[in-house]
């Protein structure tokens, strides 16, 4: 009965959903038996159904006109529609192999617990929203935020952000002691590992965001050298299926965390601040899970947040 088990990534990339809310499609009908891609028009089963046929035909015409009007008025270049989450091709730069993907555009976080080898992980899949960086205490009451996690580290001595940090084009900190980076420029999110990257300048030029953290996974392999020691680990990850945050359920080393991510199929991952629970996420039922994290006074806290698209 089964014809296909594995699904090709290309098929996901190229898939365009043409269904409308008014369409009905019976699956599995051979093409020769389909009329309009399996979308059912009422057959003339009895005379009394003429009115029903006319009504549905009329509704179809109205639907087509509505779709036409929608297409005419849709803002050009907006990639935030629900079904347009398309991963673009990998981009190779001189010093790094970076992954670019487009932002998604809707509003909750799917979570999933999984075990890779002996490592228990919790995954947070943001279902849309725009990625931004926030500096300072997290506005927990801001209901537009669906996911927030501490991003860059800060220095213990002066509280300043470690590594280059750009917020809406404004340079907040410099440094490249960590090789991993995340840049958000327009609708693109770029994860990579490189001491120097053009995406830093682009983030400044285009009012984007940029921060640095340890590169845990680069090109599907272990990233840079990381400190030893064990803690709750967290990372911003990219796999063939999109961008998500992974979190270890137990205190583990960066090395073991990276190994688990690689085994899971992660291609790029940079660390996020761990040790404590996820700052905030809104689940599929609209329940907001807000951690009671104390604000570190005098320290420059930074967060990567997913904000609902209006």
């Amino acid at each position: 009965m089964r014809k296909e088990v594995a699904m090709m990534p290309d098929r996901m990339k190229n898939y365009v959903d043409t269904m409308s809310d008014d369409d009905v499609l019976i699956l599995g009908i051979p093409e020769e038996e389909e009329t309009t891609k399996g979308i059912i028009s009422p057959p003339p089963k009895k005379k009394r159904n003429i009115w029903a046929i006319c009504s549905i035909a009329l509704m179809g015409v109205i639907g087509i006109i509505s779709i036409g009007l929608f297409c005419v008025h849709r803002p050009m270049g907006n990639n935030n529609s629900r079904d347009n989450y398309v991963l673009s091709d990998s981009v190779h730069t001189e010093n790094s192999k970076d992954i670019i993907l487009e932002n998604c555009g809707f509003s909750y976080v799917a979570t999933k617990d999984t075990i890779i080898g002996k490592t228990a992980l919790k995954l947070f899949w943001p279902m849309g929203g725009s990625i931004k960086l926030h500096v300072g205490e997290l506005p927990k009451n801001n209901l537009s935020i669906i996911l927030a996690a501490r991003a860059a580290d800060y220095r213990a001595d002066n509280g300043e952000i470690v590594g280059a940090f750009v917020q809406e084009g404004e340079l907040r900190a410099r440094g490249n002691s960590k090789l991993g980076f995340c840049a958000v420029i327009g609708n693109e999110v770029i994860l990579g590992m490189s001491k120097e990257t053009p995406f830093f300048e682009r983030a400044v030029e285009r009012s984007g965001y940029f921060f640095r953290q340890y590169a845990l996974v680069h090109d599907g392999a272990q990233g840079e050298q990381t400190p030893k020691g064990q803690s709750i680990r967290r990372a911003l990850c990219y796999s063939g299926e999109g961008l998500f945050i992974a979190e270890s359920r137990e205190r583990i080393s960066y090395h073991d965390f990276s190994e688990a991510l690689i085994r899971m199929g992660v291609q790029e991952a940079i660390a996020l601040v761990g040790s404590k629970e996820m700052a905030l996420y809104e689940d599929v039922y609209g329940t907001r899970h807000v951690a009671d994290l104390p604000h570190d006074k005098g320290m420059t806290e930074s967060y990567i947040v997913w904000v609902k698209d209006l």
Partner: peptide, 23 residues
Amino acid sequence: GLLSEIVGEQLGADGDLFIRVGR
């Protein structure tokens, strides 16, 4: 949409067990 296509392909003629209703 993609998942429905795959399910339809896997079930073949028996795929009509499933009906996609709207998006």
